[in-house]
Write a protein that binds this DNA or RNA. Structure first.
Length: 203
DNA sequence: CCCTGATTCGC
DNA sequence: GCGAATCAGG
């Protein structure tokens, strides 16, 4: 893989959005995060500093403290080039157990899901299908959930959706997921149930 | 351990 | 220019 203009553009965009090098590498494919970081540096956009050239200070000149990975300034997106074909359609936010019962069937061939997850997100099981023990456990765990957003999920974070997707009261568990599983221990318990267990519990 | 970016240096 | 290896940290 080489750094085509398109790939560089994606790199710049994602880096500007505050995406991590590894996330960018996954998106691009064919490169490691090291390659991304290396390219970022070569492009000279490693640090988003306000001023231009910034030389080192040999003496004690209190420089403005630079926030590392914090604050995403996200200034007014300079949407220039009126002729540039933006081949990037609106990124469809993958609705897990979301609403939108409309005629589903995503028309867009969304290339790669935003969620770096392997498995699709299953619907929330009905409460009456969950064992009381597991339910209690889950509720306890959800108090400690890290409340991650979609973008913060990784292969090793629990992707169990919590809350109402239609409102702001929605996030993902985010606790450490079991190896090879998309959920943490507690949520695996309610996500993967033996058929027999579900039958017995059904009315 | 998981992750992050930064730097070096052989290619 | 490229990026794996390595470093330094959270």
């Amino acid at each position: 893989m080489s750094w085509t203009d398109e790939r560089v553009e994606t790199l710049k965009r994602m880096w500007g959005e505050g995406q991590s090098a590894s996330q960018i590498a996954k998106e691009l494919g064919g490169v490691t995060r090291n390659a991304v970081i290396g390219k970022v540096h070569r492009l000279g956009l490693s640090n988003r500093v306000g001023g231009k050239d910034e030389e080192e200070d040999t003496s004690a000149s209190a420089p403005a403290p630079v926030a590392a990975t914090a604050s995403r300034p996200e200034p007014a997106p300079p949407r220039p080039e009126p002729a540039a074909p933006r081949a990037e359609p609106p990124r469809p936010a993958a609705p897990p157990a979301a609403a939108a019962p409309a005629s589903n069937v995503t028309p867009l061939p969304l290339r790669k899901a935003i969620i770096p997850a392997g498995q699709p997100l299953p619907p929330q099981p009905s409460l009456n299908e969950i064992s009381p023990e597991a339910l209690a456990s889950v509720r306890e765990v959800e108090k400690r959930a890290k409340r991650l957003t979609l973008m913060e999920l990784t292969e090793r974070t629990c992707k169990w959706p919590i809350g109402d997707p239609a409102t702001d009261d929605f996030w993902f568990c985010g606790l450490p997921s079991l190896p090879g599983k998309p959920y943490c221990e507690a949520h695996v318990g309610v996500a993967f149930q033996p058929m027999s267990a579900r039958r017995d519990r059904r009315r």
